[in-house]
């Protein structure tokens, strides 16, 4: 994502933000409330259309006008607000918008049996235990609801998975599983954007960190070169700016989804 800007009315949410993401990499996006993290994610997932700036995938410029467009390019998102339909049940929520269907006489009929089975598998992967798949999701705990939102994103077999506060309403055990799961996604070569206020979680799971403040990128670096104190200083503005990546990386790879070592590096 290059030079992304977005304003809501007079409020400028993002100013010229550059953001890169590579295959098999977990990037932590941190910043104070209102720093622009969720806005950036929503631009990448097609919810908002940026005022300025472009999105590139593998060097190709793309334009997203809806979440469905972003999904077609392999981007799935777990939204902070979870985006669940409260009165609908677990299976319906996981597959909403991406239902499995079978073709009967030219009609697209819901394949409820297959969806049930797949929902069971997904929940098992995340070790989420539910009494029944038929309960409306409003009856579930915060952690379970979050799990369902994550299942929805996983079901899409995406290349890029954005997670906005995936561990926010989870108990300790549950959030451990999510962190494990993020690591597993990385092993599968997927790219993950991990937003969290919990720096402890962030440091345990991410490879690289991007710090936003007042809609600008104020810090960037690999996690082994950073410590929590520095990041807190960047978030709160005690430290003005810090870029530990070096100019060469910054110039060379803007906007491309590539191997971390740059083996497929496309010069722009």
């Amino acid at each position: 994502m290059k030079k992304i800007s977005k304003a809501f009315g007079g409020v400028i949410a993002l100013r010229d933000v550059d953001f890169r993401l590579f295959e098999g990499e977990v990037v932590g996006l941190v910043g104070d409330n209102g720093a622009g993290k969720s806005t950036l994610i929503k631009i990448l997932s097609g919810v908002y259309i940026p005022d300025k700036g472009d999105i590139y995938i593998g060097g190709e410029r793309v334009e997203f006008r809806s979440p469905l467009d972003a999904w077609k390019y392999g981007i799935a998102t777990v939204y902070q607000e979870l985006a669940l339909a409260d009165k609908m049940n677990v299976v319906e929520n996981i597959f909403l918008g991406h239902e499995l269907v079978k073709n009967v006489l030219g009609l697209r009929i819901l394949d409820k049996r297959r969806m049930r089975q797949r929902a069971g598998e997904l929940l098992k992967q995340l070790l989420i235990e539910l009494k029944s798949l038929d309960v409306p999701v409003s009856k579930l705990s915060g952690g379970q609801r979050q799990g369902i939102a994550i299942c929805r994103a996983l079901n899409l077999e995406a290349r890029v998975i954005c997670m906005d506060e995936p561990t926010a309403s989870m108990a300790v055990g549950e959030s451990e599983r999510i962190l494990d799961f993020v690591r597993r996604l990385r092993e599968q070569g997927k790219a993950v954007i991990f937003i969290s206020h919990n720096l402890e979680h962030v440091f345990r799971v991410v490879d690289r960190l991007v710090v936003l403040r007042h809609g600008r990128v104020v810090g960037e670096g690999y996690v082994e070169d950073l410590d929590k104190d520095t990041v807190v200083k960047l978030i709160t503005g005690v430290l003005e700016n810090l870029n530990l990546l070096g100019e060469e990386v910054r110039e060379g790879t803007t906007g491309d989804l590539l191997d971390r070592n740059g083996s497929k590096k496309v010069r722009r």
Binding site: P67, L68, A85, L96, G97, V101
Partner: peptide, 23 residues
């Protein structure tokens, strides 16, 4: 029996959520 029914209900639950889910 078709996705249309789910989509109708999802919009009634929350149009914004339904849109984020890809409806």
């Amino acid at each position: 029996k078709t996705p249309f029914g789910w989509h109708i209900l999802a919009i009634g639950n929350s149009e914004y959520s339904a849109r984020l889910a890809g409806v």
